[in-house]
Every structure is written in C-alpha cells, then in structure tokens.
C-alpha cells in the first residue's frame, strides 16, 4: 500500500485565509459564549472533529500503516504538522516513562496576525490543535490527552503542545455479539 511521497498533498492555499477564517470563528465564539474557558473547550471539541477527518486525509495520502510505538506516532504527527500547517515542530521533552512528549513550534500560522486582548488572557487560542491531535489519534486507536504548555500569544518564546498517551483502544465488536 505504499504511495509515493512525492504525491503528498500538493494543493495549497494562502495561510492567511486560514488565519483569518480561524480568527473570525474564534471571535464569533467569544460573542456566542462570552466566556474564555467555554471558548477554549469548544475549540478543543471543534479540533477533535477536524482531527477525526484529517486523519483520513493523512492516511490516504501517505499510505502509512499503524504506528509501531509512540515514537513512531510522534514522527508521523510531526510530518502531519508539516503537511497541514506548513510548519515543522520539534519533538522534545520525553517523559522518563516514554508516554509523554511535546511538540514545540516556533511559528504557527494560526497565531500569525493575532494578539490577545487583556480580557481574554485565559483563552487557549490554539486549543484547536490539541483537539485535532486527540481526534486524529483516537481514530487510530490511541487514547491521548493533549494540552498547551507554552503559548506565544502569552509571551512565551514558542508554543509547546504536550501529548500524553493514556491507553490503546480496542476494535469494536459487531452489534449483537458479546
């Protein structure tokens, strides 16, 4: 099932279209929900929905098989960042047990042109990425948690997204069988 990597996702769009569309969406959510924490949660959920779809696109384009271990997962997700956002994060800060690590981004198209006003300092603007990771990995049977550790919008020098492996999910059993 190996597809040549040269064919991988050549169609591109201007990243500002994504930046501004995302910005308009977040602004609208703030209007609708009126609470930074709820918006952060909603963004994560939205990301989850994107994740369960984006993983199909990724698998179909790369022809990649199941992950051998978490290291392999990290490499694949790193590649996906490059494919979808055009930026390549570093994989770093592995926990001793090897079940937790971080993606470190020094630039991020989502936050380009963005500045958080003082009353929204709690907003996890990039929470959508955490959601995408959770959704995408759940589809390949990995239950993970993901959260933002450092945030450029809050003055940190880069954006760090943490990922923790919880457990492997099992295949669903056909209806009517136990």
């Amino acid at each position: 099932m190996s597809r040549s990597s040269s064919r991988i996702d050549t169609k591109k769009v201007n990243s500002e279209l994504v930046t501004l569309t995302y910005g308009a969406l977040v602004a609208q959510m703030i209007k609708d929900l009126d609470n930074a924490d709820d918006v952060s949660k909603q963004l994560e959920r939205l990301g989850y929905n994107m994740g369960i779809r984006i993983v199909e696109d990724f698998l179909s384009k790369t022809g990649s098989g199941r992950c051998l271990d978490l290291k392999d997962t990290a490499d694949k997700v790193q590649m996906a960042f490059k494919m979808y956002l055009g930026v390549q994060p570093n994989v770093a800060n592995w926990s001793a047990a090897g079940d937790e690590f971080s993606f470190i981004l020094d630039s991020n198209p989502l936050t380009e042109l963005v500045e958080l006003p003082d009353d929204l300092k709690n907003l996890k603007y990039c929470n959508i990425i955490c959601g995408v990771l959770r959704g995408a990995l759940e589809m390949v049977h990995l239950d993970v948690q993901s959260w933002i550790v450092q945030d450029q919008l809050k003055g940190d020098s880069n954006t760090e997204i943490r990922l923790k492996f919880i457990r492997r999910l099992e295949d669903s059993i056909p209806a009517g069988e136990d």
Binding site: M1, R3, R53, E56, D57, S60, K61, G63
Partner: peptide
C-alpha cells in the same frame, strides 16, 4: 487493492471526509 486504496483516497476522503 490499488483500486480500493484509490477509492479511499480519491473519492471517500475527498467527498465524504471533507
């Protein structure tokens, strides 16, 4: 298999997933 893979990537992903 080739055809199935193509159905997945060129039809299913394009017109259902997206």
């Amino acid at each position: 298999r080739e055809l199935l893979q193509q159905i997945y990537s060129q039809v299913f992903v394009e017109y259902v997933v997206k």
